[in-house]
């Protein structure tokens, strides 16, 4: 049986297709202005890319902020449950998921069967999320994809003390003005995300193994900062950005 998971996030929409318990393809695109359209569009893209007919798809589960406006979906499930399901599928040992997406960060505690036992999400604030990194990349005139590698070249991470994206951007600008190395600024940004997210994770309790999911997991600098702050090693999902969509597809298939 073929099932599809559609994850409409604040910045990007993701879709994943599963067949008989195997991931057969996935897709990522920008959500854009119309979240309702994004779910539909990425679904059609996914079908076209994998050359699968609409009728061949069994059940569809939608997740993410736009989950309730995906008309093709049979059911909506929150990204908390989907990320846990996706992580458990990819690595059944995982007991804790740190997911950092476009506008939220969350920490999910799971039992050995992949069931969510507790979770925490960031407050109404974008600091410590993907959007925060985008703002900083613009201020530093650095491509976001280069952030991870560059931060590993830092000799002395700069201190970014503000808890607010806008104020942190001003801090970054004054660091630039003072001639601080980009690498150090970027490492400082990653450390500030690390402190914020690990403080939240400690409320839930971090049980190893820990897996990081979400688009920000592609940034090795953030992963290292999280490891440094928590003192624990973190596995990165091979399909970090589409992990939620994979979880949704698994739930659609009745596997999770």
């Amino acid at each position: 049986m073929i099932s599809v998971g559609i994850d409409v996030g604040s910045i990007s929409a993701k879709a994943a297709m599963m067949k008989d318990g195997e991931l057969i393809g996935s897709k990522v695109m920008l959500t854009g202005y119309n979240a309702r359209n994004a779910g539909e569009r990425i679904f059609l893209d996914l079908l076209a890319g994998l050359d699968v007919q609409r009728d061949a798809v069994g059940r569809i589960v939608a997740t993410g902020y736009g989950r309730n406006s995906v008309e093709v979906a049979d059911k909506a499930v929150t990204e908390i449950t989907c990320h846990a399901a996706g992580a458990h599928f990819q690595d059944p040992a995982v007991r804790c998921v740190i997911d950092i997406g476009g506008q939220d960060s969350k920490v999910i505690a799971m039992d050995t069967t992949g069931r969510v036992t507790d979770f925490a999400m960031n407050d109404k604030c974008a600091a410590g999320t993907g959007r925060f990194l985008e703002v900083m990349a613009r201020a530093l005139e650095v491509d976001l994809d280069a952030f991870g590698e560059m931060s590993l070249q830092a000799d002395q991470p700069a201190a970014i003390s503000s808890l607010c994206t806008v104020f942190a951007e001003s801090e970054v600008i004054s660091l630039i003005a003072r001639g601080e190395r980009r690498e150090n600024i970027i490492a400082g940004i990653h450390e500030s995300i690390g402190s914020r997210v690990i403080a939240m994770a400690n409320r839930v309790g971090i049980t190893e193994p820990v897996m990081m999911t979400g688009g920000v997991a592609k940034n090795i600098g953030v992963v290292r900062a999280l490891e440094k702050k928590s003192g624990k090693s973190i596995r990165v999902s091979a399909n970090a950005q589409v992990n939620g969509a994979i979880g949704a597809a698994l739930i659609a298939a009745g596997i999770a």
Partner: peptide, 18 residues
């Protein structure tokens, strides 16, 4: 102004799933 509907909506849905 301190209430964010979509965030609270997701938290409640996730809590009920738990």
């Amino acid at each position: 102004r301190s209430f964010s509907e979509s965030q609270i909506d997701t938290r409640i849905d996730a809590f009920m799933e738990v």
